[in-house]
């Protein structure tokens, strides 16, 4: 191999240290189409990142969501690593978050939310249902995604494990119906027994009467 260098073996840049992201990263970026070109792409992503930090749960097309997810992950992990005293980090945060109060939110609310040892993904992405294509909106039939920051205050999107079987509404109704059914069955059985007893008593009386006669 020596003497015939592969161009692919370009060296890694090491001046800035960063931690490994726990979300899948594509080998190449997506071109989000924009008349401004690469600058327009970054501006689109800035808006998405700002929205995610602001609302903590957003629904959008898969393409842009997956692209923006990496940027949010890196922003949070870098903010945790360097803190708010680092000048470069503050510059980066104020570039990506378009409103100034969100920079405070990033360092004071979102970073302390995670334990020091937690390295995992700071966001979750769920597949959302698509719109059914109509003739007018045929272009809208793309994958949709719900992106959220972990530790948000909203109720969970997926049903919790404890509610999975027993407490689902149809299971509760079925249980109640079953209970009623068996109770009714018991009552019926009891009534039948009583009737049998009374019938037998009547028969005896009749027999007695016949004997007397």
């Amino acid at each position: 191999m020596v003497g015939k260098p592969l161009k692919s073996l370009g060296y890694a840049e090491v001046t800035k240290l960063m931690s490994e992201l726990k979300v899948p990263v594509l080998p190449r970026h997506r071109n989000l189409s924009s008349p401004l070109g690469p600058e327009g792409r970054i501006n689109k992503l800035r808006q998405t990142v700002t929205a995610l930090v602001k609302y903590e749960r957003i629904e959008l097309f898969h393409n842009r969501a997956d692209e923006a997810r990496g940027y949010v992950e890196r922003l949070v992990s870098d903010a945790r690593r360097y803190g708010d005293q680092n000048k470069e980090m503050m510059e980066m945060a104020s570039y990506w978050l378009l409103e100034k109060q969100l920079v405070h939110k990033l360092f004071k609310v979102i970073c302390p939310r995670f334990h020091d040892t937690f390295d995992g993904p700071f966001t979750t992405a769920y597949n959302a249902p698509r719109k059914y294509p109509s003739e007018t909106e045929r272009k809208q039939y793309f994958k949709r995604v719900v992106l959220e920051l972990k530790g948000h205050p909203f109720p969970p999107l997926l049903p919790q494990a404890s509610y999975q079987g027993k407490y689902l509404i149809h299971n509760v109704l079925l249980d109640a119906a079953m209970k009623d059914y068996y109770q009714e069955k018991k009552l019926n059985a009891m009534q039948n027994k009583k009737e049998e007893v009374t019938e037998s008593v009547d028969e005896e009386k009749e027999l007695d009467n016949q004997i007397k006669e």
């Binding site: 840049e13 931690s19 992201l21 190449r28 970026h29 690469p38 600058e39 970054i42 890196r74 980066m92």
Partner: peptide, 20 residues
């Protein structure tokens, strides 16, 4: 391209992360 220095994922794709 003044926006390129803020492109976090471009930076990430050019380095080897600390754990590795």
């Amino acid at each position: 391209t003044p926006w390129e220095k803020y492109d976090l994922m471009k930076e990430y794709r050019r380095t080897i992360p600390e754990e590795q």
